[in-house]
């Protein structure tokens, strides 16, 4: 199953290697990894997505905590959360093919952030499936994709959870009674519903 770990780590040289090395040692491929500053001084927040067995989640989280530079770890698992990814896509397009791209960008609620005579750059934020969708449509269009740059996933739990609350929640197990997600809908659907609302 897909695991999403959110961790607060000390902002020091080599910390990312220590985190990545843990997954290397377990022979687990990291699907996506984003790191950046957090609301806590001196701490970076990372979101790491990987494929591993359901039982492995507990052990990975326990092992991440053992790293001296790791301060907090949350295993999002299936808990209600918002996941986003940022993509920059450069497309080859001239005066005549450009307008078709503009239409697509409108439909996907993306933005044009750069425009030259031969190319344009699209910025898009959303869930993975939405970005994949835009890429697929672009691939089927006349305009060739020249470059894709994707940030990888960033995840945050829904609701009023500060990072210290996350820590107190501790186990990172699935929402036991489905209280936050009474319909038991897959999260992607929930995300899509929100994402399709005007921002």
């Amino acid at each position: 199953m897909l695991h999403t770990f959110v961790a607060y780590v000390e902002d020091l040289p080599g910390v990312l290697t220590r985190v990545a090395s843990l997954f290397r040692r377990l022979n687990i491929n990291i699907n996506s990894l984003t790191v950046g500053r957090s609301e806590r001084a001196g701490l970076s927040r990372l979101t790491l997505v990987c494929e591993a067995s359901a039982e492995a989640g507990h052990r990975i989280r326990a092992s991440l905590f053992k790293l001296e530079n790791v301060v907090d770890v949350d295993d999002i698992a299936q808990a209600p959360s918002v996941t986003r990814e940022l993509a920059l896509i450069k497309v080859g397009a001239n005066r005549t093919t450009r307008s078709a791209i503009f239409e697509l960008v409108e439909v996907f609620r993306a933005r044009i952030v750069d425009l030259t005579a031969e190319s344009l750059m699209i910025e898009m934020t959303g869930v993975e499936s939405k970005i994949e969708g835009l890429i697929q449509v672009l691939n089927e269009s006349e305009s060739p994709i020249l470059e894709i740059c994707r940030s990888g996933k960033m995840t945050m739990r829904r609701g009023h959870h500060t990072s210290s609350v996350l820590r107190a929640m501790g186990t990172g197990e699935d929402d036991p009674a489905g209280l936050d997600n009474p319909d038991g809908q897959p999260l992607e659907t929930l995300d899509d519903r929100v994402a399709s609302e005007p921002e």
């Binding site: 039982e55 507990h58 052990r59 326990a62 092992s63 905590f65 053992k66």
Partner: peptide, 8 residues
């Protein structure tokens, strides 16, 4: 003492 040993 080591939580990562549980169910390993």
């Amino acid at each position: 003492v080591d939580p990562s040993e549980i169910n390993k």
